[in-house]
Design a protein around this nucleic acid. Structure first.
Length: 415
RNA sequence: GCCGGGAUGGGGUAGCCUGGUUAUCCUGUGGGACUGUGGAUCCCUAGACCCGAGUUCAAAUCUCGGUCCCGGCCCCA
């Protein structure tokens, strides 16, 4: 037996129906928000990802040399490829450019609950509009997608990286020391963050302020006591969100990112029932284009952990509609078999999903099978009916049965 | 990379501590009772000890190594 590689999954027909159902919901919501789908390759030059995240990520991704000596990596995320695509080919599209994508990504990590080596991300980027309203548009899309998925218990928290950054630089922290501090603050490990801030020359009072800021969480009113440009910007974002009817979005100034390319708002969505891997979505505004050889362009985007949303939905007892066949055609005897195939072909060409007995089973067994596959109707093709150019249609749920002329069959089943 | 718990037919399991006949039960698969009517019942059939080494007269059971899964840490772009 050949086992599946570590951290990968196979999906059963039922699982695929659930996955495709959620996928199509996400697509629909993105499209109703005016975003259009793009797709990029599963593998890229490894450099694309080291440019964005530094050389150390090579340890955490699937990277290898191909037969032509190229350094290749399976994509660990979709923002970098999307922005590469933009810089290469899409810069002349009207702005703002609103795109979304769905696909698998790969990371060489220790698998655990909600974390796989092959996983699926659904994401969106709004390119070229550095405004509170464009940020709100993106947050609004993320919120709409998750709401539409049917997930009940989740929280959206929005912060602004500029608020902490300006506090740090006011306190005397040089820009090159800031990322390390922000990284610790993001994880709320204050016993490591505080010494770093002391080393960077901050006063005890300023450090206290920063720590307090990262604990600022709540409604829009928590911004009242603050001042400064980022704070005003964040206020505007929330005003737009309110106009969009989004009331459950919280302010959380503790949402931080250690990476340099984040430029403004940052947000996260958690599904608390998932435990350690509870973050289902992360995003923010950033500028990556200049790293990839383009003109500096501000964008806002997010990525949704498709598998985690599904996991959370599952834990909430979500059931996706199953795609069972409408009709199951059963010949009553050997002599009626070919007639059954004709009827099957006829139904199928009329767009009615139809199965037919392929095992030469007797009528009783065929009913059991029809029940097992969840067919709606059994079409009995027998001599008695054939004499009247008809078939018997039995509704498996109600048990009702009636004689239907062959020429009327498609019409009857469509009702 | 680190810590802990696991792996027995397709799915779920008993047996493992205390080694010993034909590895338990449920469910699902295929067939039959039922050569024109399903969801019930009964019968038959097929199907498993993760891989490798060691200990032993004898290993699902004990020991070691590996693989994979689960929970957590690290990381989280």
């Amino acid at each position: 037996m050949i086992q599946r590689p570590r951290g990968t999954r196979d999906f059963t027909p039922q699982e695929m129906e659930t996955r495709r159902y959620l996928e199509s919901l996400f697509r629909l919501v993105a499209e109703t928000h005016g975003f259009r789908e793009i797709a990029t390759p599963i593998f890229e030059h490894a450099e694309l990802f080291t440019l964005k995240s530094g050389p150390n990520i090579l340890d955490e991704i699937y990277a290898f040399e191909d037969k032509g000596g190229r350094q290749i990596a399976l994509r660990p995320e979709l923002t970098a490829p999307a922005m590469r695509f933009f810089v290469n080919d899409l810069t002349n599209y009207p702005r703002p450019l609103k795109v979304f994508y769905f696909g698998q990504c790969f990371r060489y990590e220790r698998p655990q609950s909600g974390r796989y080596r092959e996983f699926f991300q659904f994401g969106a980027e709004l390119i070229g509009a550095p405004n509170p309203e464009s940020d709100a548009e993106v947050i609004g899309l993320a919120a709409a997608m998750i709401t539409r998925s049917g997930l009940g218990n989740f929280s959206i928290r929005v912060g602004h990286i500029g608020i902490l950054r300006s506090k740090l630089s006011e306190g005397g922290v040089k820009s090159e020391s800031a990322p390390a501090i922000l990284q610790k603050l993001d994880k709320k490990v204050y016993d490591e963050a505080v010494p770093l801030m002391q080393q960077a020359g901050m006063s005890d009072g300023a450090i206290e302020d920063v720590v307090a800021l990262t604990k600022t969480i709540g409604g829009i009113d928590v911004l009242q006591s603050l001042t400064g440009e980022p704070r005003d910007y964040l206020m505007e974002v929330f005003q737009v969100l309110q106009s969009y009817g989004l009331k459950d979005v919280k302010v959380d100034l503790g949402v931080v990112r250690g990476l340099d390319y984040y430029t403004g708002i940052v947000f996260e969505v958690d599904a608390p029932m998932l435990g350690a891997e509870k973050q289902v979505c992360g995003g923010g505004s950033y500028s990556l284009t200049e790293l990839f050889g383009g003109e500096k362009t501000f964008s806002t985007g997010f990525a949704i952990g498709f598998d985690r949303i599904l996991l959370a939905l599952e834990r909430e007892g979500m059931k996706a509609p199953q795609k069972n066949v409408i009709a199951y055609v059963v010949p009553v005897s050997e002599t009626m078999r070919l007639a059954a195939f004709k009827i099957t072909a006829d139904l199928r060409s009329n767009g009615i999903s139809t199965d037919v007995d392929l095992m030469r089973r007797n009528l009783g067994k065929n009913f059991k099978y029809a029940d097992a596959i969840g067919a709606k109707f059994v079409i009995i093709v027998g001599e008695k009916e054939a004499a009247q150019d008809s078939v018997t249609v039995r509704d498996l749920k109600t048990g009702e049965q009636r004689l239907v002329r062959r020429s009327d069959l498609s019409q009857v089943l469509k009702e």
